[in-house]
Amino acid sequence: MGVGITVEGLNAFYGKTQALFDVNLRVLANHATALIGPSGCGKSTFIRCLNRMHETIPDARVEGTVRIGDLSVYNGTSATQLRRRVGMVFQKPKLNGFRKRKQLDEVVERSLHSAALWEEVKDHLHKKSGASLSGGQQQRLCIARALAVQPEVLLMDEPCSALDPISTGKIEELIFQLKEQYTIVIVTHNMQQAARVAEFTGFFLLGKMIEFDKTEKIFTKPSDKRTEDYVTGRFG
């Protein structure tokens, strides 16, 4: 089952440049939460702070508190421990390191089922490589890989930006189903996608979280003029 995420006073830096300013957020378990905002607003930096990927960049550092369920991300938890509980899917399917292991058949089948890919690949599972799949299938394969360790949280950074509308629809449908078992945080440039898949939406601008609310509120009557300007396309 998914767990909630609590972020308090989060600041993130690239060397001397501050990318996030005092971000506070509570993500509800077993819900999809979307993060939107113009390029460079800090939304991807934020999601990478949730599984400690931010600090893999030289000179990058994080201040503040992040809790995934009962796990304190920046206080005595190893990155490996953390990533067992937090899966991540990226903009472009990254198939490096994908190897089929017969002893893992059960895990593979379960994960492919969860990622709604099993029916499409089961007949040539040991014959074809992942690279022979379509872009959308590759992305679902990445989701299957993220799910293989049975995480509680699934982070998705622009998972559909390289996909056609049909594949995008399949991923969105998958997000809808996966919410039952996982907590999902999705960064997206596609505002309509945020509106379609997420119950909650956060709007980032210049490294700050400007507004966080129920998705329908953000897209019908946002509280902050800057959010309204963004969702109506007046800037960004």
């Binding site: 509106a195 897209f219 019908t220 009557k221 946002p222 959010t227 309204e228 969702v231 109506t232």
Partner: peptide
């Protein structure tokens, strides 16, 4: 155009 917020209203 899929308008939102004030435009949709």
């Amino acid at each position: 155009q899929q308008p939102a917020a004030v435009d949709l209203r």
